[in-house]
């Protein structure tokens, strides 16, 4: 009986989190369109609902009513499986992200490692989608995407290491707890400002994360002018919508991880969890980062493939290793 009630409780939590993430993705799609519009001196969607706020819901319904097309050449089983893999793994990341003091689905002791492991499953889904489509555009897009995502995973993992060295725990709430001093205090500051090397680590993380979620300037996998739509060229209707939702959920997830690791997570800007703490503070900080990601899209042109690879392998990785040693030396000298 107790088991059943706790199971139902967990189901409700899971459904609430899923609903929250879906709502978030819908809001982000609208925000992206509005931000893009204003940056290009347009007004963006404004017909459906007040200020176009219901536009994405209308789009979602439209996608739901579309025909479900699976091309005859496609590998049917893998083609169907791929969107599930991408959607589920990018949603499962949210299980270990702390939204507030008690607002975390599961505060496992390997939190950040779990997030990294589960978010790399997305690559499998993308390769699967590209290969199963049996279309040249999809295959090229998937291979590019895979090469890019695995390459940038290394500087990403290295920049996270410097946080772990400082905190000495992989648990997400411990990482937030280590930054409870806020922005200005001498002790337990935001990890971003702990020392010069962690400051650099944040930027390494952010650049790699941009690439992980295939956002401009690293949006080669879906470079419209070269590859049509990349790995999801053959997907339409609801199957496409799953990739689309996953992409926006991912964008929120990487920003949320950046905030948790470097910008104090849900703890406030001032010490003692006072000013802007808890969920509102967290959401504001994440929104700022998400806005920066959208801003970059309309500021920077897309890189070429060779530039993309040399940025990662010849610049970010050596800098990240150097940075890691720097953090070690800093801790040795100043602690």
């Amino acid at each position: 009986m107790e088991l059943l009630s706790s199971l139902i409780f967990m189901l409700v939590i899971a459904a609430a989190l899923l609903g929250f993430v879906m709502l978030l993705a819908l809001i982000l799609v609208l925000a992206e369109r509005k931000v893009s519009a204003y940056m290009q001196d347009r007004v963006g969607p404004r017909r459906v609902g007040p200020f176009g706020s219901l536009q994405t819901i209308a789009d979602a319904i439209k996608l739901l009513l579309k025909e479900d097309i699976i091309s005859l050449q496609a590998d049917r089983k893998l083609f169907i499986l791929a969107p599930y893999l991408v959607f589920v793994s990018s949603f499962a990341v949210f299980a270990a992200i702390p939204f507030g003091r008690n607002l975390i689905a599961s505060d496992i002791n390997i939190g950040i490692l779990y997030i990294m492991a589960i978010s790399s499953v997305v690559v499998l889904g993308i390769i699967m989608a590209g290969w199963a489509s049996n279309s040249k555009w999809a295959l090229l897009g998937a291979m590019r995407s895979a090469a890019q995502m695995v390459s940038y995973e290394i500087p990403l993992a290295l920049s996270i290491l410097s946080v772990i060295m400082l905190v000495g725990s992989l648990r997400m709430q411990d990482i937030v707890g280590a930054q409870s001093g806020g922005l200005f205090s001498a002790q337990n500051r935001w990890i971003l400002l702990d020392n010069p090397f962690t400051f650099l680590a944040f930027f390494i993380y952010f650049i790699s994360a941009l690439s992980e979620v295939n956002r401009t300037p690293f949006d080669l996998p879906e470079a419209e002018s070269e590859l049509v739509a990349g790995f999801h060229t053959e997907y339409s209707g609801m199957r496409f919508a799953l990739f689309f939702l996953a992409e926006y959920a991912n964008m929120f997830a990487v920003s949320a991880i950046a905030v948790t690791l470097f910008l104090g997570g849900w703890s406030g800007i001032l010490p003692g969890y006072t000013f802007l703490n808890g969920v509102p503070g967290f959401v504001i900080k994440v929104s700022v980062l998400v806005f920066v990601i959208m801003w970059l899209r309309w500021t920077l042109p897309r890189l070429r493939v060779d530039q993309l690879m040399s940025v990662c392998w010849k610049y970010l990785i050596p800098i990240a290793f150097f940075n890691l040693i720097g953090v070690g030396v800093w801790i040795l000298i100043f602690d």
Binding site: M22, L65, D68, F91, A92
Partner: peptide, 29 residues
């Protein structure tokens, strides 16, 4: 600690499946 994660994963897969079935039923063929 991993049970909530398992349930979350299943919920997400179910959500995706329900949407795809709905789309299959509602969409033209």
């Amino acid at each position: 600690e991993y049970i909530p994660i398992l349930i979350l994963t299943i919920t997400a897969a179910l959500f995706a499946a329900i949407n795809l079935v709905l789309s299959h039923l509602l969409g033209p063929r």
